[in-house]
Design a protein around this nucleic acid. Structure first.
Lengths: 227, 227
DNA sequence: ACAAAAGTGTTGTCTGTACACCCATGC
DNA sequence: GCATGGGTGTACAGACAACACTTTTGT
C-alpha cells in the first residue's frame, strides 16, 4: 500500500561547502564550470540524491567525488527550497559543510574537477543561491567552533599554537590575543605537546601539538564551552 | 532544456514541531491519528510539499492547517533523510519548529484535527523518527533562546515576570534564581512594564509586562547574548 | 493576623580582556 | 649581534551565582 501517490515528487540535490585553511585564510573549494550551462561560473560541488540513498550518505558521496576523502567532519547546514532557486528546474537542495585539511586535498583531483580554493574573506559570486549557502555556512562555522572543538579538522595532524590561533582568527574574522588564546586552549586541555618543533616560520621554532581525541570525546558528552 | 531528467524524484514532506507553554510546562502539539495506518499513534503535524511550493511556504501552510495561525515564529530545524524513516515509502522530511501562544490555539481546531498538547518534559512515543525530531527541536530551542529573545512568542501579549521565568525554567529544564533572572531581563531592557496587575495567582498581584518589539529589532541586528 | 506569592541587594568567585617583555635561534 | 617570531604573567572589570527578608493584600 502506498497512499502517497497523489503527491508531487521533487529533484533533491546536495550542495557541499568544503572549508579549508591554508595557514592564513579560511578557504572554500569551488568548481569552475567547464561546460554550459553557466560555463565559467563558480559553484559549489553538488550532486543529486539517489533513489534509495540517505541524504547524509549522498552528502558524503558528493564530498568523496570531489576530494577522494571520507571520514571527514561534515554537518548538515540547511535545506534551501525556493521554487526558482535553480534556473533549470525546481530543485530542493540540502547543503552540508565539511572541514578538511587542505594538505589532504591533492592537486590531481583539483585539476580533474577544475576545482579551486578561494579565499572566503569575501565570498565570490556563485551560481544560484550558493553564495547565500556559503555565507550561512561561514556563520554556522563561527557559532559551532565557539562551542565544539571541531576546528582541528581544518589543520594537519601536527600543528603549532600559532597555526591554531591563525585558524580561529580566520574563522572569527578578528584578531585574538596570543596570551589569552594560549591560556584558553590549555585550560581546555585538549591538545598534546610534541617534542618536535616547526622550524620554517621562525628561527626559534614553535612546538607542534596534536589534538587529543580521548579528551575530546569526554568533553563531547558533557557539552563544553570552547573558545 | 532540462538536463536533470535522469535523476530520481522524491516525496518531500514537512513535519512541524509546535511548541506551546501553559504557564508551567513546555508542551508540544501532536496529532492523534484517527485512521489507519498507525491509527491511535501520535505524530507531528505534517504534509507534503507541493509541485511549485517553496519549502518555507509549505511549512507555513502545514502550521496554518493545524492551528489557523500565520505570522508565527518558525524556523527550519533539520532535514531528515534516512531511506527507511517512513515505513510506507521513501520520504525525505524537512522539520520546522514553531512557537505559538497556547492561548491562541482554539479548542475547535484542536478537536477537528484530533490534536493534543503533550508535556515535553518527557517526549512521548511518536511514529517514524518524530521522536528524534522533537528531541532535536527541544535542544535547538534551548540553544536559540539563550541568544535570541524569541521566547516571548510562547507567551500571551501580556505576561508577568514569574511567567517569563517559568518559561525559561521549562525550556532549560532547570530552576533559575528569581533575583538573578529579574536583573538579567531588565539589563537587556526588552520588556515594558504595564500599570496593570495579574491578580489570580497571588494576593499581592504581579505586574504585567509586554515585549518591546522596537528594542528587539535593534538587538537583532547587533546580535546579542540573552540569558 | 496570617498565608501566599511578589519584589528587591550584596558579596564572593569566576571569566574575559588588556597589555609588554624576554627567549631561542639562524643568519 | 641582531632580527624574527615564540613564549609567558598580571591586574582590572564585568558577569555570574549564591543567598533571605520585606511587601502587599485577600481572606
Amino acid at each position: 500500500m502506498n497512499s502517497y501517490q497523489q503527491y508531487s515528487r521533487h529533484l533533491l540535490a546536495i550542495d557541499c561547502i568544503i572549508f579549508g585553511f591554508d595557514g592564513e585564510d579560511l578557504k572554500g573549494l569551488f568548481i569552475n564550470r567547464k561546460l554550459e550551462p553557466q560555463k565559467g561560473n563558480l559553484s559549489l560541488m553538488g550532486g543529486f540524491i539517489g533513489e534509495n540513498e540517505s541524504v547524509d550518505a549522498a552528502a558524503e558521496r558528493v564530498l568523496f567525488e570531489l576530494t577522494g576523502l571520507g571520514n571527514v567532519y561534515m554537518e548538515q547546514l540547511h535545506c534551501y527550497g525556493a521554487p526558482d532557486r535553480d534556473v533549470h528546474s525546481r530543485v530542493v537542495s540540502i547543503a552540508y559543510f565539511a572541514l578538511i585539511s587542505i594538505a589532504d586535498y591533492n592537486e590531481r583531483m583539483l585539476k580533474e574537477h577544475n576545482a579551486v580554493w578561494i579565499n572566503l574573506k569575501q565570498v565570490p559570486e556563485l551560481i544560484f543561491d550558493h553564495q547565500q549557502m556559503v555565507e550561512d555556512a561561514k556563520e554556522r562555522l563561527k557559532q559551532k567552533v565557539a562551542n565544539h572543538p571541531i576546528g582541528f579538522a581544518l589543520l594537519p595532524l601536527k600543528f603549532t599554537l600559532r597555526q591554531l590561533q591563525a585558524l580561529y582568527e580566520a574563522i572569527y574574522e578578528m584578531p585574538l590575543d596570543k596570551r589569552n588564546f594560549t591560556r584558553k586552549i590549555f585550560s581546555i586541555d585538549i591538545i598534546k605537546k610534541l617534542d618536535e618543533k616547526e622550524k620554517t616560520s621562525s628561527r626559534k621554532g614553535s612546538f607542534y601539538y596534536v589534538f587529543d581525541e580521548e579528551k575530546y570525546k569526554l568533553l563531547e558528552k558533557e557539552g563544553l564551552k570552547f573558545i
